[in-house]
Amino acid sequence: MKHIIILLLLFSIFITALSAQIKSEREYRIKRSEAPEDAREWLNDAFETFKRVKWYKEIENDLESVEAKFKYKGSKFSVKFDTNGKVVDVEYIITSDDIPEETRKVISGYLESNFNKHRILKIQLQMLGSPDDLEDYFDDDEEGNITRNYEIEFHGITDEKNELWEGLFDENGNLILLRQIEQGPTFNLDF
């Protein structure tokens, strides 16, 4: 009898949980064949020597995009495409030494004046441009009309906040966008 009561209790709360739906925002693995053909072709033309590519679909604020993630020349790359397969941007992980010194100084200045303490966790170089210019850059090392931004993930402490942040800086080191990174609950790892 005790077991039945416990089960019924569990079941009733479970139904309550199912009935509340919220907006879906997600990313998931897709097969290579599910990626737009233009995207696959562009990737083959731009990066000829890489090995394994993982494809993902991302849905954010009802906007869909496709991402390809792979390793190339020892660095982690992530290439974003729209659903038609047109490249949106190319991002890859770099170290702070890869940022030009002048730019680095401006970024450090921003972080030092806006945060009591900060620690950089990850830096990604974001490259924007037309599909042809981006392809020529990676394929032939040709510098076309390409915009470079730096996406920096850091732990920053202010008087009120102690959080993880993501700052997007332009090639001169000026801040374009700052957002707090939502980490998701950790209580299933804590308790």
């Binding site: 919220i22 879906s24 925002e25 997600r26 990313e27 998931y28 693995r29 993902y56 998701g184 299933n188 790892l189």
Partner: peptide, 12 residues
């Protein structure tokens, strides 16, 4: 803890 679909745990 690791997701079985994609790189983060999303609904469903």
């Amino acid at each position: 803890e690791f997701p079985l679909q994609g790189e983060v745990i999303d609904p469903r």
